[in-house]
Write a protein that binds this DNA or RNA. Structure first.
Length: 361
DNA sequence: GAGATTTGACCCCA
DNA sequence: TGGGGTCAAATCTC
């Protein structure tokens, strides 16, 4: 199991590293106002690298292990967990509506959930939470035993109006206060979710919200927008959108405040994905919004993340990745490329033209 | 006044 | 039994 895998792993890493290098070059190009032709070439190279990486992933099962493969068998938005049954937790206290997902558990232990670790830039402050394109309403905060910082609880604003039961928890790391661990549960079933899945535009409301709450330390994400828009030619963005549409898997951010999807087949890939976002994700920036003081959080995009039925810890042990992660945070407040990769090797059509230029272009 | 946040209390579960 | 998750009234903000 190891041997066959390691060769492909090397290839995969090689491709991703190449993508990384190209991304860095692109970044340099962008800051030096070089020829568009050169940029396009770099972008093409980047896409090509990731394309190959995907192919490698596609043909190698070992990458598609636990988290991905066990993704919910088609239960986006369902409060039913991968492992648990809806009835496993219906002993809740006097819940009003039998249809109410709350009946499943007050603690939602069986909810599909995944965790993000988000590093925020100290310069942008810790007080402004990330916006992820969704509207969240804080419904609680608890001091957690052994934790320095309280945990905040958020649920979708449209919980009542659209029966959207997505929730998230934001916990600031004790070890590194610049890191926020965000746990998501449930998928957005609200219209906002579908809207965000289609649009990379910044919702006016979000913008207003951010402006309204500008505490002086998080406004730079707006200032950065123009440059972010310039990071890619329209064609490139179009191509990536095609990619999203074709695969229904990648999502480079579905709203201005989103950072796209990750759900990479495993943690290792996530690191690279994050790095990718350092360049690619600039047009899918996530915002740090100051709506709540204790939660600078980074979120997965609205792109069907919750298909992943298991906790997905995104960690960044690799110095270089972390460095880029942080650097990008400071530059754009959108440190993570959040790929949505909700397919496993069996879900990928072997004939799917990943390896054709036409797929990307 | 509507909507969001805060916060104390309640309840479930390990 | 205590920690964690949620509720809901009070309070705040726009």
């Amino acid at each position: 199991m190891e041997s066959g895998w390691s060769w492909d792993q090397k290839s995969l890493i090689g491709e991703l590293i190449q993508g990384l290098e190209l991304t860095k070059r692109l970044r340099a190009e962008l800051s030096s106002a070089s020829a568009e032709e050169s940029r396009r070439s770099l972008v093409q190279g980047i896409l090509s690298s990731y394309e190959k990486a995907l192919l490698i992933l596609k043909w190698n099962g070992p990458m598609n292990q636990p988290q991905m493969v066990e993704a919910t068998p088609g239960l986006p938005g369902s409060p039913i967990s991968v492992n648990g049954s809806p009835s496993s937790d219906d002993s809740g206290r006097g819940l009003k509506d039998p249809q109410d997902p709350r009946k499943e558990s007050k603690k939602r232990k069986t909810q599909p959930r995944w965790t993000e670790q988000v590093k925020v830039n100290s310069e942008t402050g810790f007080d402004g939470p990330h916006e992820d394109g969704y509207s969240w309403r804080k419904y609680g905060q608890k001091d957690i035993l052994g934790a320095t910082y309280p945990r905040s609880y958020y649920r979708c604003t449209f919980r009542n109006t659209q029966n959207c039961w997505a929730i998230k928890q934001v916990q600031r790391s004790d070890e590194d206060p610049s890191v926020f661990e965000i746990t998501y549960r449930g998928k957005h079933t609200c219209s906002q979710g579908s809207y965000l899945a289609q649009s990379c535009q910044s919702p006016d409301k979000q913008e207003k919200k951010e402006n309204d709450h500008d505490h002086g330390h998080n406004h730079n994400h707006h200032q950065l927008q123009p440059s972010q828009e310039n990071l890619f030619s329209n064609q490139t963005i179009e191509n990536i959108e095609k990619l999203e549409n074709k695969a229904s898997t990648f999502c480079f951010g579905s709203s201005s405040t989103s950072v796209g999807c990750k759900d990479i087949v495993n943690g290792g890939f996530s690191h690279l994905a994050i790095d990718t976002h350092a360049a690619l994700g600039s047009f899918t920036q996530s915002f740090i919004s100051p709506t709540t003081p204790d939660s600078n959080y980074f979120t997965p995009s609205p792109c069907q993340r919750s298909n992943v039925g298991e906790t997905h810890n995104v960690q960044h042990p690799e110095p270089e990745v972390h460095e880029i992660f942080s650097a990008n945070t400071s530059a754009t407040n959108s440190p993570i490329l959040d790929w949505d990769f909700p397919f496993d090797s069996e879900q990928i059509n072997p004939n799917f033209p990943f390896n054709s230029q036409g797929f990307f272009y």
